[in-house]
Amino acid sequence: MSTRSSYEILDEVGRPVALLPPSFRWGGGAVAVVGAGIFLALAARGSVVLGTFVGGTATMVGLAGAAFSREPVEDELTRKLRLESAYWALMVAVSMLVGANTIAFFVDGQADVYTGTGGMCAVLAFYLVRFHSALRSLRTDGPEA
């Protein structure tokens, strides 16, 4: 089972489960750590923008690689845990961003509209579109028996 490619893994109703190979977990983790190091090194020299672009992007790509790599045995429990983890992570990220925005506004008089907040709004919007379109297709597909 562990030797199959990602696209040969099917869910309960035969749809392919698209995930990266397992090696991406450790490879992505390494890239993320290196990226964080680059960010810290450049930020310490005062190059916060360059550090965010190079180090931050590398960290994000590395974490994405680790997050979307498949387990040696990918089954229905793994998929359930992935879904629950994604939902939990989204809720925590939204809470943290709302808190950070509130502090930034009342303490510094600033608001992070175009980066973190914009990105989070996009993620939530994509989630809503995907979820409701899938729900709608289940409600409308096929004649009623």
Partner: peptide, 20 residues
Amino acid sequence: GVSRQTIYALETQDYVPSTA
């Protein structure tokens, strides 16, 4: 065709399996 962890979760009543 599942992981050993899934069998463990089933046996500890922590997971309700799919119909399949």
